[in-house]
Amino acid sequence: MSAGLPPLIAAYKGPAGPDVLTFATRWRGASGRPVRVVTVYPGSAPVGRGRVDAEWVAYNRHEAESILDGARKALAGTDATFEAIPAESAPRGLHEAMEAAGPGAVAVLGSRTTKGVRRTAPGSTAERLLTGAPGPVVLVPWDYEELPQPQVQRVSVAFIDTPDGRAALEAARAHAAEVQGSVDVVSVLPDTLVRPSLGEPRRFAEGQREDFAASLAEAVLPGERSRLIEGPVVEGLAGLGPEDTDLLVCGSRGYGPARRVLLGGVSARLLRHARVPVMVVPRP
């Protein structure tokens, strides 16, 4: 297990809180990365020029500490730390917590209710945090705590030979090494590729498949697994289940601020359908 790693910042609040704690402790068990459980509460309430309703702030802090008591009970006997963070919004508080923790900190958030289906579904906090987070963000499926996996060790990565795809692959390898786990490099051959108006469509499709397969083979290192799935892309990646992997890593959109998460079309749609925890990594 690794020492001196930045923390997993587990956003604990609401019915998804136990799912977040379960994922964080499983990762902690595999790597030794510390767990910092946080909940964000409104930190100020202006009532006039230069004045703040101190009683309102104290009430919100008390409520936040009450929420954290549930996490303290669930993680009793561990070395997890707990903090109520005052901020103007939950995404802002989590963003600031990640920046304060330094490079490499990972935020872990739960999903909103998915009507009994164990899939990822970002709520408003996750969606807003994922528009510029300073580090990786993991979204855990609803009801994840009921899954039997004891640790996070099988790491899959959605790969395409682009800068953001290579950044995702690099991040997946780093996290797999941290948990002493395996890497599975997954590429999806889209079913929406352009077909020629002239010539032989079947031969053209075979050539496209050969290009994807060659790119995948070139990316994979000895000891890593690979798989080429037929599209559609989102459905192909969302088809990966707990029997296949413990964590799916994907990249950010290929433009926007450097070293920030910025969801692209595929990653945004994947986060609404995945059956396993999904990590979105900042663009290079």
Rank of each mutant, 00 (worst) to 15 (best):
P257C: 00
S156K: 10
V38W: 02
Q149P: 09
V185F: 10
G135R: 09
V52N: 13
V186E: 09
A84S: 02
T113C: 13
Q151L: 12
E206I: 10
A3Q: 14
Q180A: 11
G181F: 04
T113V: 11
G29W: 04
K115W: 14
L68S: 00
V280I: 06
D164H: 14
R173N: 08
A174T: 05
R283C: 03
R272M: 07
L271P: 04
P190Q: 15
P103S: 01
S187Y: 12
V185Y: 10
V38I: 03
G254F: 05
L129Q: 05
V179Y: 05
G48A: 08
R119D: 07
L198T: 14
G181D: 08
R26V: 00
G251P: 06
V234W: 13
R61D: 00
P232V: 13
L193Q: 11
R173K: 11
P86C: 04
L221Y: 14
A90D: 06
V234T: 14
S197C: 12
R253C: 08
G48D: 09
G223C: 11
A101F: 00
R119S: 09
H95G: 08
Q208K: 14
R49S: 12
G104S: 03
A214T: 09
G256L: 03
E63I: 08
S252H: 01
A16C: 07
E200P: 14
G104D: 05
A205Y: 15
L139E: 06
L147K: 09
V52Y: 11
E65G: 00
I160H: 15
L109F: 00
T162M: 10
R227H: 12
P196Q: 11
Q149K: 13
E170G: 10
A126Q: 11
T192Y: 14
T114V: 10
Q151V: 10
L270Q: 08
Q180I: 07
A45C: 10
A24V: 02
V276E: 05
A90R: 06
A11D: 00
G132K: 04
L75T: 00
R154H: 07
R225G: 12
L94C: 02
E63M: 13
V20W: 00
S215W: 13
A174W: 03
P42Y: 10
V108F: 03
V234M: 14
P103D: 00
A167Y: 08
E210Q: 15
L228I: 13
A133Q: 06
A176S: 05
G236V: 07
P284E: 03
R49W: 13
R209W: 14
E99G: 05
A30V: 04
A80G: 01
R283Q: 02
L8P: 01
G123L: 07
A171V: 01
V108A: 01
T78E: 01
V52D: 15
L198M: 13
F82C: 02
P18Q: 04
